[in-house]
Protein backbone atom coordinates (compact mmCIF):
# COMPACT_ATOMS: atom_id res chain seq x y z
CA UNK A 1 0.00 0.00 0.00
CA UNK A 2 1.24 3.46 -0.83
CA UNK A 3 2.11 5.14 2.45
CA UNK A 4 0.74 8.47 1.23
CA UNK A 5 -2.76 6.98 1.18
CA UNK A 6 -2.58 6.81 4.97
CA UNK A 7 -2.82 10.60 4.93
CA UNK A 8 -6.44 10.35 3.78
CA UNK A 9 -9.39 10.22 6.23
CA UNK A 10 -10.49 6.73 7.17
CA UNK A 11 -13.91 6.85 5.40
CA UNK A 12 -12.15 7.93 2.19
CA UNK A 13 -9.61 5.11 2.55
CA UNK A 14 -12.32 2.54 3.13
CA UNK A 15 -14.04 3.65 -0.06
CA UNK A 16 -11.18 4.39 -2.48
CA UNK A 17 -7.89 3.05 -1.09
CA UNK A 18 -7.99 -0.34 -2.82
CA UNK A 19 -8.75 1.30 -6.19
CA UNK A 20 -6.02 3.92 -5.90
CA UNK A 21 -3.58 1.30 -4.67
CA UNK A 22 -4.37 -0.82 -7.74
CA UNK A 23 -3.99 2.23 -9.98
CA UNK A 24 -0.58 2.98 -8.46
CA UNK A 25 0.42 -0.65 -8.99
CA UNK A 26 -0.33 -0.20 -12.71
CA UNK A 27 1.28 3.22 -12.91
CA UNK A 28 3.89 3.84 -10.19
CA UNK A 29 3.58 7.30 -8.66
CA UNK A 30 5.94 9.96 -9.97
CA UNK A 31 7.13 12.79 -7.75
CA UNK A 32 4.35 14.92 -9.22
CA UNK A 33 1.80 12.19 -8.39
CA UNK A 34 3.05 12.11 -4.81
CA UNK A 35 2.48 15.85 -4.44
CA UNK A 36 -0.92 15.37 -6.04
CA UNK A 37 -1.81 12.69 -3.48
CA UNK A 38 -0.80 14.95 -0.60
CA UNK A 39 -2.89 17.76 -2.06
CA UNK A 40 -5.79 15.33 -2.52
CA UNK A 41 -5.48 14.17 1.10
CA UNK A 42 -5.59 17.77 2.31
CA UNK A 43 -8.71 18.36 0.25
CA UNK A 44 -10.31 15.14 1.54
CA UNK A 45 -9.87 16.37 5.12
CA UNK A 46 -11.08 19.89 4.40
CA UNK A 47 -13.99 18.92 2.14
CA UNK A 48 -15.11 15.40 3.08
CA UNK A 49 -17.01 13.77 0.23
CA UNK A 50 -17.32 10.29 1.68
CA UNK A 51 -19.60 9.43 4.59
CA UNK A 52 -18.16 7.70 7.60
CA UNK A 53 -19.62 4.22 8.00
CA UNK A 54 -22.43 4.14 10.56
CA UNK A 55 -20.18 2.22 12.97
CA UNK A 56 -17.57 4.99 13.04
CA UNK A 57 -19.76 8.03 12.45
CA UNK A 58 -20.79 8.25 16.08
CA UNK A 59 -20.74 4.74 17.46
CA UNK A 60 -24.11 4.13 15.93
CA UNK A 61 -25.53 7.33 17.31
CA UNK A 62 -28.44 8.73 15.39
CA UNK A 63 -28.70 12.14 13.75
CA UNK A 64 -30.65 13.50 16.73
CA UNK A 65 -27.85 12.57 19.13
CA UNK A 66 -25.27 14.22 16.89
CA UNK A 67 -27.44 17.33 16.75
CA UNK A 68 -27.29 17.41 20.57
CA UNK A 69 -23.48 17.06 20.39
CA UNK A 70 -23.24 19.95 17.93
CA UNK A 71 -25.76 22.08 19.86
CA UNK A 72 -24.11 21.56 23.26
CA UNK A 73 -20.70 22.27 21.74
CA UNK A 74 -21.91 25.56 20.29
CA UNK A 75 -23.85 26.55 23.44
CA UNK A 76 -20.96 25.67 25.78
CA UNK A 77 -18.50 27.49 23.53
CA UNK A 78 -20.60 30.65 23.52
CA UNK A 79 -20.91 30.47 27.32
CA UNK A 80 -17.11 30.25 27.63
CA UNK A 81 -16.63 33.17 25.26
CA UNK A 82 -19.19 35.19 27.24
CA UNK A 83 -17.37 34.25 30.48
CA UNK A 84 -14.11 35.62 29.06
CA UNK A 85 -15.70 38.89 27.98
CA UNK A 86 -17.52 39.21 31.30
CA UNK A 87 -14.38 38.54 33.36
CA UNK A 88 -12.40 41.03 31.36
CA UNK A 89 -15.06 43.69 31.98
CA UNK A 90 -15.49 42.88 35.68
CA UNK A 91 -13.37 44.86 38.17
CA UNK A 92 -11.28 42.77 40.54
CA UNK A 93 -13.21 41.90 43.68
CA UNK A 94 -11.35 43.83 46.39
CA UNK A 95 -12.56 41.50 49.14
CA UNK A 96 -11.74 38.08 47.70
CA UNK A 97 -9.07 39.17 45.17
CA UNK A 98 -10.25 37.09 42.23
CA UNK A 99 -13.03 36.97 39.67
CA UNK A 100 -14.26 33.38 39.81
CA UNK A 101 -17.42 34.69 41.43
CA UNK A 102 -20.67 36.18 40.23
CA UNK A 103 -22.05 35.88 36.71
CA UNK A 104 -18.64 35.53 35.01
CA UNK A 105 -17.63 32.61 37.24
CA UNK A 106 -21.01 30.92 36.74
CA UNK A 107 -20.69 31.28 32.96
CA UNK A 108 -17.22 29.70 33.06
CA UNK A 109 -18.32 26.72 35.16
CA UNK A 110 -21.50 26.08 33.17
CA UNK A 111 -19.53 26.47 29.92
CA UNK A 112 -16.98 23.87 31.05
CA UNK A 113 -19.72 21.45 32.11
CA UNK A 114 -21.80 21.88 28.93
CA UNK A 115 -18.76 21.40 26.69
CA UNK A 116 -17.78 18.40 28.82
CA UNK A 117 -21.24 16.92 28.19
CA UNK A 118 -20.76 17.56 24.47
CA UNK A 119 -17.41 15.75 24.58
CA UNK A 120 -18.94 12.73 26.34
CA UNK A 121 -21.92 12.53 23.96
CA UNK A 122 -19.60 12.81 20.97
CA UNK A 123 -17.11 10.22 22.27
CA UNK A 124 -16.53 7.29 19.95
CA UNK A 125 -15.34 4.15 21.66
CA UNK A 126 -13.46 3.57 24.89
CA UNK A 127 -10.36 5.52 23.89
CA UNK A 128 -12.29 8.76 23.60
CA UNK A 129 -14.82 8.09 26.38
CA UNK A 130 -12.08 8.21 29.05
CA UNK A 131 -10.67 11.70 28.22
CA UNK A 132 -14.17 13.02 27.44
CA UNK A 133 -15.45 11.83 30.84
CA UNK A 134 -12.38 13.34 32.48
CA UNK A 135 -13.28 16.66 30.87
CA UNK A 136 -16.82 16.49 32.23
CA UNK A 137 -15.59 15.50 35.69
CA UNK A 138 -13.04 18.32 35.53
CA UNK A 139 -15.82 20.75 34.69
CA UNK A 140 -17.92 19.45 37.59
CA UNK A 141 -14.94 19.76 39.97
CA UNK A 142 -14.79 23.50 39.29
CA UNK A 143 -18.09 23.70 41.22
CA UNK A 144 -16.14 22.86 44.37
CA UNK A 145 -14.33 26.22 44.38
CA UNK A 146 -10.70 27.03 45.13
CA UNK A 147 -8.33 25.14 45.30
CA UNK A 148 -10.11 22.07 43.88
CA UNK A 149 -11.35 24.06 40.91
CA UNK A 150 -7.80 24.42 39.60
CA UNK A 151 -7.43 20.61 39.62
CA UNK A 152 -10.65 20.25 37.68
CA UNK A 153 -9.66 23.00 35.28
CA UNK A 154 -6.25 21.46 34.52
CA UNK A 155 -7.78 17.98 34.21
CA UNK A 156 -10.23 19.41 31.66
CA UNK A 157 -7.38 21.04 29.69
CA UNK A 158 -5.11 17.96 29.67
CA UNK A 159 -7.98 15.62 28.76
CA UNK A 160 -8.96 18.00 25.95
CA UNK A 161 -5.45 17.77 24.43
CA UNK A 162 -5.53 13.96 24.71
CA UNK A 163 -8.99 13.82 23.16
CA UNK A 164 -7.76 16.08 20.35
CA UNK A 165 -4.79 13.81 19.67
CA UNK A 166 -7.05 10.75 19.50
CA UNK A 167 -9.65 12.44 17.32
CA UNK A 168 -7.01 13.85 14.98
CA UNK A 169 -6.91 10.53 13.11
CA UNK A 170 -10.67 10.17 12.68
CA UNK A 171 -11.90 13.76 12.42
CA UNK A 172 -8.97 16.08 11.68
CA UNK A 173 -10.46 19.58 12.10
CA UNK A 174 -12.25 18.73 15.37
CA UNK A 175 -9.10 17.07 16.73
CA UNK A 176 -7.02 20.17 15.93
CA UNK A 177 -9.62 22.42 17.61
CA UNK A 178 -9.62 20.26 20.77
CA UNK A 179 -5.82 20.35 20.94
CA UNK A 180 -5.81 24.13 20.49
CA UNK A 181 -8.42 24.52 23.26
CA UNK A 182 -6.49 22.28 25.67
CA UNK A 183 -3.16 24.01 24.97
CA UNK A 184 -4.64 27.52 25.32
CA UNK A 185 -6.59 26.97 28.54
CA UNK A 186 -3.61 26.79 30.99
CA UNK A 187 -2.61 30.32 29.88
CA UNK A 188 -6.05 31.62 30.87
CA UNK A 189 -6.13 33.87 33.94
CA UNK A 190 -9.18 35.50 35.43
CA UNK A 191 -7.36 38.48 36.91
CA UNK A 192 -6.00 40.20 33.81
CA UNK A 193 -6.53 40.47 30.07
CA UNK A 194 -5.68 36.78 29.71
CA UNK A 195 -9.33 36.26 30.68
CA UNK A 196 -10.01 37.10 27.03
CA UNK A 197 -8.33 33.81 26.02
CA UNK A 198 -11.70 32.25 26.83
CA UNK A 199 -13.10 34.03 23.76
CA UNK A 200 -11.04 32.08 21.16
CA UNK A 201 -11.44 28.95 23.27
CA UNK A 202 -15.21 29.38 23.26
CA UNK A 203 -15.27 30.17 19.54
CA UNK A 204 -13.18 27.05 18.87
CA UNK A 205 -15.78 24.99 20.72
CA UNK A 206 -18.56 26.64 18.75
CA UNK A 207 -16.66 25.99 15.51
CA UNK A 208 -16.22 22.32 16.46
CA UNK A 209 -19.99 22.20 16.93
CA UNK A 210 -20.53 23.75 13.51
CA UNK A 211 -18.17 21.19 11.93
CA UNK A 212 -20.09 18.33 13.55
CA UNK A 213 -23.42 19.93 12.58
CA UNK A 214 -22.35 20.44 8.95
CA UNK A 215 -21.51 16.77 8.65
CA UNK A 216 -25.09 15.79 9.47
CA UNK A 217 -26.72 16.44 6.07
CA UNK A 218 -23.52 15.44 4.25
CA UNK A 219 -23.46 12.09 5.99
CA UNK A 220 -27.09 11.42 5.26
CA UNK A 221 -26.81 12.47 1.60
CA UNK A 222 -23.64 10.63 0.76
CA UNK A 223 -24.75 7.52 2.60
CA UNK A 224 -27.65 7.29 0.18
CA UNK A 225 -25.54 7.94 -2.92
CA UNK A 226 -22.73 5.64 -1.84
CA UNK A 227 -25.02 2.63 -1.93
Amino acid sequence: MNRLLRLYPRPWRERYEAEVDELLAERPASLRDRFDLVRGATDAWLHPQVAAPASTAADGAGGAERLVVAGSSILGGLLLAAAGLSMNATPLNATVGYKETGVAGALLIVGLIVTGISAVLGARGRRTVIPATTMLLGGLLTLAGWPILIVGFLAYAIACVILGLIRLAASGPVGILFMAIGITLPSFNTEDERALLLVPVGLAWALAGVVVGRRLPALTRSASTAR
Binding site: Y16, V20, A29, D36, L37, A44, Q49, T225
Partner: peptide, 19 residues
Protein backbone atom coordinates in the same frame (compact mmCIF):
# COMPACT_ATOMS: atom_id res chain seq x y z
CA UNK B 1 -1.84 16.59 -19.63
CA UNK B 2 -1.62 13.85 -17.00
CA UNK B 3 -4.31 13.67 -14.33
CA UNK B 4 -2.75 12.93 -10.92
CA UNK B 5 -4.25 10.16 -8.77
CA UNK B 6 -5.21 12.59 -5.98
CA UNK B 7 -6.95 14.91 -8.42
CA UNK B 8 -8.64 12.00 -10.21
CA UNK B 9 -10.13 10.49 -7.07
CA UNK B 10 -10.97 13.90 -5.58
CA UNK B 11 -13.02 14.60 -8.69
CA UNK B 12 -14.52 11.08 -8.80
CA UNK B 13 -15.66 11.42 -5.17
CA UNK B 14 -17.35 14.74 -5.91
CA UNK B 15 -19.00 13.49 -9.09
CA UNK B 16 -20.23 10.36 -7.33
CA UNK B 17 -21.60 12.31 -4.40
CA UNK B 18 -23.48 14.66 -6.74
CA UNK B 19 -24.96 11.74 -8.63
Amino acid sequence: APLGPGTLYGALARLERRG
